[in-house]
Design a binder for these strands. Structure first.
Lengths: 335, 335
DNA sequence: GGCGCCAACGTAAACGTTTTCATGGCGGCT
DNA sequence: AGCCGCCATGAAAACGTTTACGTTGGCGCC
């Protein structure tokens, strides 16, 4: 026995398919009595409307697509969680597509989502305005996350990397650490650049006389370790180190431990992201918390708004704040 | 200008829609020359087949749904990653639906996926055979992950908790720790029970004279901490502690550190899961590695197999092996 | 009492594909 | 040379909905 269709329900309830359709959605234009009979029949037959047929005629899928670079680590897990939470609340389905590093793969992913989604959530360091113009079906609502794209044609939602980094640097300086070094992130990365700028801005403002001390990194633990060794080799060691993300801070911590340098007594240390590991290393790591779940949730809600009123708001660039969380490694408690 | 349909392509290439359809899928039944012309026309119009229309007529969505309890922590992130990887490789889309703790929500999720997916991947401690029978549209292929359901009507894929736990216990015993205590997981949990049984089996086999020493836990870090204190309070402290998961091992470690008990010199410690944190605590934590990505991948591939040949293989219960990974906390290197 | 209006309901078209079946042409075989 | 069959192609039905439009009946109002 195949699944029941609307016709079966119509026959069962002795009405036309049109009435069944009306009764199932809202029920306006149909008597309370008939509606009751129809619902009873639907219940009896375990009728569930065929999603594809509905999509075809309605041109709405009630699905949004999420394009992610590579589901690696706690960050994406949290992000998806936020997105999913908000989507569920709005009755939207979530089609995810991750693991495409290359631009080519991303383009293919976008293409294959054509017609399956009402809107797209894109998080990718790789895509730029040109890519979007070339690959995005026009008219498809899109929200970009943590993107460098500034074009007024697209909606973007970013983490306030700049303010977060600046706040942490200021905190380190005010805790009495006269010199603060910075371990930078990968070259092209948008978040990395903003954090870098935040560091510079805070230094310029609160320690104008201090020299900038920036060593290279690429967000990996390994690069943090190397940066740590590099810092230790400097003739005048910095009093504090601020890494552009937590993983590098953790790597740096290993280098310090290995060299017998005590944290925070000899050198203070802080990271960025507030991934769970920060709470388990010794000493616990001070960091800048990013509310990832909220980021995902906001992005979805923004997108959902776009679905309802396509072009009401011109493309906006929103920013999500972050806060510093002080633990042992930055030495604030031992001043 | 709305998106181009198959009719537009047909007109552009001066053929019938049937030929276009044939040319687009496989191209059998159409001359190489015509096919070339059709593809050229499609390219020119940027034609992309309408997914919903195709689903409607084909009755295939090329999408599989993943039902997860709550995307919390590294485990799900990795799992989804494995699923996504395999799905992408097979050209399948992935519809995720997480965050439903209650049975009611899960039922609603299943219902709403009706007709949008060709198969379902379910990971949930809550669902049992009765639930599945009641809520699953018959004929929809399903693969259960880490499920206690034993019914021959369903395909299940489990982690070999029993063997993994037994291997770790044997390792601890053979490393010279005469007594091994166990911190159990939550009551109803399937994985927890299997690990418990693995512990008992290994003890019975390799240390038949030693008494079992089991304290309660619920997989949370907090419960591990309490268990650790409980163990320290025993008149005869165990030489080694095996926690049913890593988070409890980490909590237990905190309790030991707090009490000045050295790991592994005074007491050896091991966990289960190999979550990333194990590598960052001090000392690094020995554990049983579960290849989560592979679990996801295998599950999807099994499901994909079911899609192709619906009932060829009768419902099978497969098991994915795991391996012990020896780090500092179990004291094997200092024997 | 007849006329028109409105609400409830039915009929049928439309959405964009795939697929079955019919048609015609052409080549090979006897 | 004639016939049979195959292959490329086209016409049309089908998938399960929604919705525009038409039809009916009842009721109020003049």
């Amino acid at each position: 026995m195949a699944a029941a269709t609307i016709k079966d329900v119509a026959r069962e309830a002795k009405v036309s398919v049109a009435s069944v359709s009306r009764a199932m959605n809202g029920g306006s234009g149909v008597t309370a009595e008939t509606s009751r009979r129809i619902h009873a029949a639907a219940e009896r037959l375990q009728y569930i409307p065929h999603a594809a047929a509905r999509m075809l005629i309605t041109r709405r899928t009630n699905t949004i697509g999420a394009l992610l670079p590579d589901l690696y680590g706690e960050f994406f897990s949290e992000l998806i969680r936020g997105i999913d939470l908000a989507a569920r609340a709005r009755g939207l389905h979530l089609l995810v597509s991750s693991s495409h590093d290359g631009v080519e793969e991303a383009a293919a992913a976008v293409r294959s989502m054509q017609g399956r989604v009402d809107g797209l959530l894109i998080l990718s360091g790789r895509v730029d305005a040109a890519f979007l113009r070339a690959n995005l079906p026009r008219g498809l609502p899109v929200v970009l996350l943590n993107s460098a794209v500034k074009s007024p044609a697209y909606h973007v939602l970013n983490v306030d990397n700049h303010a977060g980094a600046a706040a942490m640097v200021r905190h380190l300086l005010q805790a009495g650490h006269s010199s603060v070094a910075f371990i930078a992130g990968p070259e092209g990365n948008f978040d990395a650049r903003q954090r870098d700028e935040g560091y510079r801005a805070a230094m310029a403002k609160h320690a104008p006389k201090a020299a900038l001390n920036i060593v290279a990194g690429d967000f990996s633990e390994e690069s943090g370790y190397r940066a740590g060794r590099e810092l230790l080799a400097q003739t005048i060691r910095p009093r504090a180190v601020f890494a552009a993300n937590d993983m590098m801070a953790v790597g740096c911590l290993s280098a310090f431990k290995e060299a017998g340098v005590r944290v925070p007594q000899d050198i203070a240390l802080a990271g960025f992201d507030d991934i769970p590991i920060t709470r388990y290393v010794t000493p616990t790591l001070s960091t800048v918390r990013v509310r990832i779940v909220d980021l995902g949730r906001s992005a979805l809600e923004h997108l959902a708004g776009l679905l309802e009123s396509p072009e009401s708001s011109t493309a906006s660039a929103q920013t999500l704040g972050c806060e510093i969380v002080v633990r042992e490694s930055c030495g604030a408690s031992v001043t």
